[in-house]
Simulated assay, not measured.
Amino acid sequence: MGNQEPFWNATIDELSDGYIQSGDEYVCLLCSERFEDGIIYPMDGTLYEAKKAIARHIEEIHTSVLHFFLDLDKKYTGLSDHQNELLHYFSKGLSDKEIVKELNGGSPSTIRNHRFKLKEKEKQAKVFLALMNLLNKKADKKTEDNFVSFHKGAKMVDERYAITEEEKQKVLSTYFKQGTDGKLDTFPSKEKRKLIVLQSIVKRFDRNKKYGEKEINEILKPIYSDFATIRRYLIEYGFMNRSKDCTEYWVKN
């Protein structure tokens, strides 16, 4: 997903639904698919209005919003691998005794203790959200904590690479001297700058289209002479996916 603002700006209820309503459209927060009011969408032999269609889309493409979140990297959920595993079992409605059997170890009291700790984590999260909400109301939007959002699949991103909007614009003006629609002067060596440049380049691709390698190269050639390096980094840094036989490429949602 290229533009992360709808996802990160969504309310808890909207995130739980997996979509937002934007004007006459319902937008999937998990992949940016859009469904427009007034259009009927046929799915598996049934006709759906936009709101029902997006719910059906989430079920078919993403299984459920819960599954989508549980599959996110721990840097987004803040969950340990064990906590994530337990939440998978909780989502299935398993009892503490049943979970012990699935884990092949432990005790029901241990599972109950984990349930308690997760509830405490939920309370802490609510207080933290309230604190950040109050802070954001007072904060000047031009302050240095206005960080750039990268799509959830982006790799190499951690707290070392926190990038402000001001810093992003400086990097882009340095490497794209003719503007971000023009040619890349040089490809940066620093990880942080690579992320900024690659995020800009990937915007030149249609997110709803699959490309052959030749098509990818034709788009990248005018940007940078070593287009093969750009293509490789777009994959390595999680901005694009490709099929196992390397015949199809697409923007990673």
Rank of each mutant, 00 (worst) to 15 (best):
S107A: 11
G18A: 10
F128C: 04
S80I: 03
Y19M: 03
I20V: 15
L94G: 08
T77R: 07
G38F: 02
H62G: 05
H62N: 11
L66H: 01
F128E: 14
A125H: 03
Y41N: 02
A125C: 01
E120I: 13
F116S: 07
A130E: 14
E85D: 01
L79R: 03
K101H: 09
S64G: 11
R112F: 08
H67R: 12
K92T: 04
D81H: 07
I39W: 04
S32F: 07
F69E: 13
T63F: 06
E85R: 05
H88V: 07
D44H: 13
G106H: 02
F116N: 06
M132E: 15
L131T: 12
V27N: 01
P108R: 07
I111N: 03
Y19W: 14
L70K: 06
I58Y: 03
S16M: 08
I61F: 01
K121N: 06
H57P: 08
H82V: 09
E36P: 00
E102T: 02
Y41T: 02
I40M: 06
Q124T: 11
D71C: 11
A130D: 11
V27R: 12
S80N: 04
I39L: 11
I58V: 11
K123W: 09
G18N: 06
Q21Y: 00
D37V: 04
E33H: 09
S91K: 08
N113S: 13
S22A: 09
E25S: 15
L72I: 05
G45L: 02
Y48S: 05
F69S: 11
P42V: 06
I99S: 05
K92M: 13
E36W: 01
E36G: 00
K126P: 00
L79Q: 01
N133V: 01
S109D: 10
K75Y: 05
I61T: 13
N133C: 03
Y26F: 15
K117L: 15
H62K: 08
A130M: 09
K51I: 11
E49R: 05
E98K: 14
V27W: 02
H114V: 07
I39S: 05
G93M: 08
Y19F: 15
G38V: 03
P108E: 11
L129E: 13
I99E: 08
H67N: 12
H57Q: 13
Q83N: 04
F69A: 10
I61W: 03
L29S: 10
H67P: 00
H67Q: 09
D73H: 14
S91C: 05
N133G: 14
K52D: 12
L86I: 03
E59I: 06
I20F: 01
M132A: 14
S91G: 15
I61Y: 07
L47K: 12
F35S: 02
G23S: 05
D37E: 12
G38P: 02
E60I: 15
Y41C: 01
I58L: 10
K126C: 10
L47N: 15
A55R: 14
T77W: 05
L129V: 07
F128P: 00
D73R: 14
F69D: 09
K51Q: 14
A125E: 09
